[in-house]
Design a protein around this nucleic acid. Structure first.
Lengths: 177, 177
DNA sequence: ACCTGAACACCGTTCAAGT
DNA sequence: ACCTGAACACCGTTCAAGT
């Protein structure tokens, strides 16, 4: 699962090959079909696992009682770390771009990751603005989109400093607290 | 070229097949190699053509003497139209995500598209803030990233209204004039 | 329960051969 | 100048066969 996730973040769904993955883990490609009948099933399982992992990481952050600014800084750091690991992209950013070529089951899992992120961001914004639920949801979605965009542009040019510059601009501008 | 571009925006570089493209235009796949020796050469030509096309469209906009707000509205409309055309993605957004699996010549052309966009946006911002060159460049890059992110999220969920909502939030927030 | 080799229709690429 | 069929090593998928 871990090897496949790293390949997805590097080369995308189309770049993930049963034969290469099998080599990575020391079995034959047909053996992977014993666990995952189709590539779609594997992709959906990988996206689901990815969401569960980062959902846990982010929830852990919220239990620490940090302020809004610190939570947001930790959040944007996660995406920077992904870029630093061999210029990888968030799994949901990569699969989101490939959306039109994905089986429905994979599409659905990718959407769930985005919603999880938006909900977490809205909860963080509520620390400072508990009354503005609708307002927080809109801002959360805008932040999520902007962070994905910043990572996409930095990934495209293989330059993490671009990500950091863009995030700093969002912060100076007030989009991200 | 047009058929291949539409496929790239729909299914990405990995989803573009010489055999399918050949069927689209009524020749055999080997014949395409007469014009483009490799898939990388074809991809680079397509990205270059895409940049030239939208570069001309945007420059045309600037000659009309519109104000900053109208230019920005027309700019974000271009990305909305792309989504409305069968949930397609900006070519540079799609190929940007696939960056790690692209031949270098294609990577380079994709970067050029982004730079063209940033330069145009900076010129528009200069209409209102002629003195702040560095400031305009930073904001231009942040706007480009944010627009790409908004399109990516709307594409992921196949819902143009999401794009419009996120762009409206950027506008209300002041990121986009 | 878990793994394998062999087959199928796909893919980009090459090349000799056509007009 | 432009196009083609056939071959090569790849791909996801299937399946009978192994342990």
């Amino acid at each position: 699962m871990e090897a496949a996730t790293l390949t997805l973040q590097d080369l995308g769904y189309g770049g993930l090959s049963f034969r290469e993955l099998a080599k990575d883990v020391g079995i034959k490609s047909a053996s992977i079909h014993y666990y995952f009948a189709t590539k779609g099933e594997l992709g959906a399982a990988l996206a689901n696992r990815y969401t569960a992992h980062y959902g846990a990481v982010l929830d852990e952050l919220l239990t620490q009682g940090l302020d809004v600014e610190t939570c947001m800084a930790r959040y944007t750091d996660v995406f920077a770390e992904t870029l630093r690991a061999d210029n990888r992209l968030c799994l949901a950013g990569m699969l989101g771009a490939e959306r039109n070529q994905l089986p429905e089951e994979v599409q659905a899992e990718v959407v769930k990751y985005g919603i999880m992120n938006e909900q977490w961001l809205a909860r963080v914004l509520a620390l400072r603005n508990p009354g503005g639920v609708k307002e927080n949801e809109r801002q959360a979605r805008a932040i999520y989109a902007a962070v994905q965009g910043a990572q996409l542009i930095a990934h495209t040019r293989n330059d993490v400093s671009l990500y950091e510059e863009i995030i700093a601009t969002y912060r100076a501008n007030g989009l991200i607290p």
